[in-house]
Write a protein that binds this DNA or RNA. Structure first.
Lengths: 142, 142
DNA sequence: TCTATTGTATGCATATATTCATACACTGCG
DNA sequence: CGCAGTGTATGAATATATGCATACAATAGA
């Protein structure tokens, strides 16, 4: 019934808080991919599907998709569609500062996980909550 | 000898990810107030302080401050400065009733976000790393 | 009163975001 | 081949964001 593309499409929501539409789409798709809703190789919703579903312009959606492709998160194939990259690049487009912050990221990640288990929390629940807090900071009405 | 204004000012950081500058400032100040770094009645950094500190225009900072005042989060007083509202407006539209275990989940989530931001880490990067670590535990290729 | 500080305001210029309309190029399939 | 679906591209129009310079207005304090 529900293909991955439909789940992704149904999860997209726009707010009117000043954040550019293409940024909202980009970040939300990034969240869905990072959370595994759209696993590597999965087909992403069509640019036109997103445009019609969110009632925005095709070029605006394309802006978001291009950003994601530049980051290596998705792959765009003309005539075929868009797909989650087989080897998702979580580092970003050009991560120049691989200083102490890089290791602190792993440190904090593993520490957070152990703390979560200690507190009897499901890691996936925590991740989901984190994604909500970061992407849906202050919302208008649903 | 760190005044609250200095702590707030020092916590502000800008990214070049397409999010308007005034939105970044607004959301970060909102977060600092919500976390109690700037408690009710505390003085906020001067618009000019933020403008100089972040190297952006005074009007841009003012845009952020006006948004926060419109939300009732801060109070602007000409000639005096800006102050956190005594009775901060509720941050979310409708704070969902948190169960006993959900509250600890929310607590840990927001605490993790705070720590990540204080460490200068991108929340999305942390989330991605967490997602990787949890999926690897279930048996995937490195 | 004078001065420094701070929020408020305006005008101009440039860059970006968004929409609309209209195409073009590539792919798989009948 | 012809067709439908999908990504790619362009040009015009409008709105917003940002920076820069220059002020004005209110407040506290010397």
């Amino acid at each position: 019934m529900h293909t991955i593309e439909h789940q992704v499409l149904a999860a997209l929501r726009l707010k009117r808080d000043g954040v550019p539409i293409y940024v909202q789409i980009r970040e939300q798709l990034l969240d869905l991919i990072a959370r595994g809703v759209a696993p590597p190789g999965a087909r992403m919703p069509t640019m036109r599907q997103v445009a019609v579903g969110l009632r925005v312009d095709l070029n605006t959606v394309r802006h978001a998709y291009e950003d994601l492709q530049r980051q290596g998160v998705i792959v765009l194939r003309r005539g075929l569609g868009s797909f989650v990259a087989e080897r998702p690049a979580p580092a970003g487009p050009v991560p120049p500062p691989p200083g102490p912050e890089e290791s602190s990221l792993d440190d904090m990640a593993s520490r957070v996980l152990s703390e979560a288990r200690q507190a009897g929390l499901e890691p996936l629940d925590l991740i989901r909550r984190l994604a909500e807090l970061t992407s849906m900071r202050k919302g208008d009405e649903p």
